[in-house]
């Protein structure tokens, strides 16, 4: 490939000069666009179906555009007053979980990233074991009960706060931050605590943003723990409320008397897909605020360079 003197059109990137760019860029952009189309089509279908009439859905006529507009699914989901309270609780659980898990994991991962840390190996093994072995639901349940965490946010926040997988990934990331930084700082007389807070963490904005996103989304989508530990129905998070709406709209079979029935005239798919949108929408809304930090690492690099 030869150096192109023609400035490629998107020349915004200050630090990269695009060599042999056109062919590569074209193929690359076509590839990514294709990926987007493949990803988006089913999703658009979900939206289209959530807004279509029951009749059109049954016919299989809905493809990517809603036919015979119908908001019944959304009316059922958002007409349920408990949903707003559930949004609030979910937000609280998510924020608490994110703060706890990100801080705890960072505290643990930093020492592990130090090559001659004396407890590195035993701690790594202890972490690794938890990835594969667990005591099962009943002992976990008894633990939460005996600690008196039943019905509290802590029952959802604490058990998953320190995870092996995340710790190892944080550690890899910290390692990726130049080795010499710690050594240089140590020579300058800085302690490890200072290095972590003043140097490593500011350099890890991208990491923190990423894992905050993971944590928020993880808590947002979880229902199992709340199902077990949150007995108070007024504190249920959003997923559990949506599950009950979906279940009851689909159908229910009862007992030996064995009466099965489908409720009302609303198509279950309307409700199911409206619920899906109700879950995803807030996440898509917060996403851009977090994404901003994904590029922050690069700017730090530029300053350093």
């Amino acid at each position: 490939m030869t150096k192109t003197t023609l400035p490629s059109k998107p020349v915004k990137a200050k630090n990269k000069i695009h060599i042999g760019g056109y062919a590569f860029d074209t193929v690359n952009i076509i590839f990514l666009t294709l990926c987007c189309v493949i990803v988006l089509m089913p999703f658009i279908r979900v939206i289209a179906i959530s807004l279509s009439s029951s009749r059109m859905i049954d016919r299989g006529a809905v493809s990517l555009w809603p036919l015979e507009f119908n908001f019944k699914g959304y009316e059922i989901v958002f007409g349920n007053v408990t949903i707003y309270r559930a949004y609030g609780w979910t937000l609280l659980y998510s924020v608490m979980f994110t703060v706890t898990t990100v801080s705890m994991t960072a505290c643990l991962a930093y020492p592990l990233s130090v090559n001659d840390f004396i407890l590195k190996k035993p701690i790594s093994v202890l972490l690794l074991i938890t990835m594969f072995f667990s005591g099962g639901t009943v002992p976990a349940y008894l633990l939460i009960k005996n600690l008196g965490l039943m019905n509290t946010a802590w029952a959802l926040v604490l058990p998953g706060a320190v995870g092996a997988w995340n710790t190892f990934l944080y550690r890899s990331f910290f390692k990726g931050i130049s080795h010499e930084i710690r050594e240089a700082a140590l020579i300058d007389g800085a302690g490890d605590l200072r290095i972590l807070i003043k140097i490593i963490l500011p350099l890890s904005k991208a990491l923190i943003a990423t894992f905050s996103l993971f944590a928020i989304v993880g808590m947002w989508n979880s229902y199992f723990a709340a199902m077990l530990y949150i007995k108070d129905s007024t504190r249920q998070p959003i997923q559990n409320i949506l599950r009950s709406i979906v279940y009851t709209s689909v159908s229910a079979t009862f007992g030996d008397a064995g009466m099965a029935m489908t409720q009302g005239t609303v198509n279950p798919l309307n409700v199911q897909y409206a619920c899906l949108i109700a879950t995803i929408a807030p996440l898509l809304f917060i996403y851009p605020f977090i994404q901003k930090y994904f590029e922050s690492g690069m700017q730090v690099g530029a300053v350093k360079g």
Partner: peptide, 22 residues
């Protein structure tokens, strides 16, 4: 009245509740 979970979720919890004497 406690629980108030959706029927399917309630059923999913029963074995655990029994085992934990809850």
């Amino acid at each position: 009245y406690t629980s108030g979970l959706a029927w399917n979720d309630y059923q999913g919890n029963e074995a655990t509740n029994l085992a934990a004497k809850e």
